[in-house]
Amino acid sequence: MNYETDAVVVGAGPVGLFAVFQCGMVKMRCHLVDALDAVGGQCMALYPEKPIYDIPGFASLPAAELIARLEAQAAAFKPTIHLGRQMVGLDRVADSWRCTLSDGTQITAKAVIIAAGSGAFGPNRPPLDGITAFEGKGAGLGVHYFVARREDFRGKSVVIAGGGDSAVDWAISLAELAERVMVVHRRPKFRAAPESESRLKDLADAGRVELVVPYQLHGLEGDNGRLAAVTVATLEGEVRRLEADALLPFFGLATNLGPIAEWGLAMDRNTIAVDPATMATSAPGIFAAGDISAYPGKLKLILTGFAEAARAAHSAYEFAHPGEALHFEHSTSAGVPR
């Protein structure tokens, strides 16, 4: 099928959903494209029940609830949504862009906003012999790289490996319901947000979490794919055995920009270089927001991505409607355009 619209947003994560809303606020018709089968990006695919702590106005908000709120907000403008389809082609045609999807659909738009996070993603698997035999063994058992349901780990003995935000946040969360939570990290200092690290250490002092430091993953024990224990070792070779029902290794994601890297945009390593004043890329009419965009001093926060999405939408309007003044009004006075 062929479509014509004002803007195409690539990526249906939180920033992409908010970009759709912001396009609607400046009266731009919008199509939304994502390779996943549901909106939400990493929030829904990797950690729908993980609490997010840096959304203004919410002390804590589960990722799935954040996505539901953003989806409802964007729905007011009735965007056309293409899920389970990757945008594989981007070609300049006259004064517009022709976006080609993996199913052959073509969308012609005045502007494109790329909000694809870090691109396609998958877990970094730790190099442990036989680890694949313990993957996908059911709720709360074996090796899991993401937590879809906290409740799966109720009453379980869980080993969490890693020292970043995901490892620390899930240790804090699962301490509320797991029988035992052990956090394995190669050094006493964690790489998580200071407040989260402080909460983790408070739980350790209270005996609700065990910090297994300085250790690294060494091996897995079990029969017929059922995990029995995780062995860990120091750099000096001291080995410990941790009886466990589940191992959660949080060593980040392996990402791949896929076709985006072939669109001829100026890149900054694995991100797209933009002008922070407009979120414009090196190509006219193409803008980027969220983790995929790069500029000096950028903070990789959802909050920052929301602001970038708003700026990108306004810049897209100015590009699509040259010479037309955009009379911006706050939503409290203008309401939602109809």
Score class of each variant (00 low, 15 high):
1 M>A: 13
4 E>P: 00
6 D>W: 08
10 V>R: 02
13 G>E: 03
16 G>H: 00
21 F>C: 00
25 M>R: 13
29 R>C: 06
30 C>F: 00
45 A>T: 09
46 L>C: 14
46 L>S: 11
48 P>Q: 08
49 E>W: 07
51 P>Y: 06
51 P>I: 08
53 Y>R: 05
54 D>F: 09
54 D>Q: 12
54 D>P: 06
55 I>L: 11
56 P>F: 07
56 P>S: 02
57 G>H: 10
59 A>N: 10
65 E>L: 05
67 I>M: 13
68 A>D: 15
70 L>A: 04
71 E>H: 12
74 A>D: 09
74 A>K: 06
75 A>T: 01
81 I>Y: 01
82 H>D: 04
91 D>S: 14
91 D>Y: 08
92 R>V: 05
93 V>W: 05
93 V>D: 10
97 W>T: 12
97 W>H: 13
98 R>A: 14
98 R>L: 08
101 L>I: 01
102 S>L: 12
102 S>G: 07
103 D>S: 00
105 T>G: 11
105 T>I: 09
107 I>K: 06
108 T>I: 05
117 G>N: 00
132 T>K: 11
133 A>G: 12
137 K>G: 01
138 G>I: 01
139 A>W: 07
142 G>K: 03
147 V>E: 13
153 F>V: 01
155 G>I: 13
156 K>E: 04
159 V>H: 14
161 A>C: 09
161 A>R: 00
162 G>P: 10
163 G>S: 11
165 D>R: 04
179 E>G: 15
180 R>D: 11
183 V>P: 04
184 V>G: 02
187 R>K: 15
191 R>F: 08
192 A>F: 07
197 E>A: 15
200 L>R: 12
205 D>I: 07
214 P>T: 05
215 Y>R: 08
219 G>Q: 10
219 G>V: 02
224 N>F: 14
226 R>L: 14
227 L>Q: 05
231 T>D: 04
233 A>K: 12
237 G>A: 09
238 E>Q: 07
238 E>C: 01
241 R>S: 11
245 D>W: 11
245 D>M: 08
252 G>E: 02
255 T>Q: 14
258 G>S: 14
259 P>D: 00
260 I>Q: 08
263 W>Y: 03
265 L>Y: 09
267 M>F: 04
267 M>N: 00
276 P>E: 12
277 A>K: 13
279 M>Q: 15
280 A>E: 14
282 S>P: 10
287 F>R: 03
289 A>W: 09
292 I>D: 00
293 S>R: 03
293 S>T: 05
294 A>I: 05
297 G>T: 10
297 G>S: 01
299 L>E: 11
299 L>M: 13
303 L>P: 01
304 T>S: 12
305 G>N: 02
307 A>C: 04
308 E>L: 07
312 A>H: 08
316 A>E: 10
320 A>H: 12
320 A>F: 10
322 P>D: 12
323 G>D: 10
325 A>E: 15
327 H>S: 08
335 G>C: 01
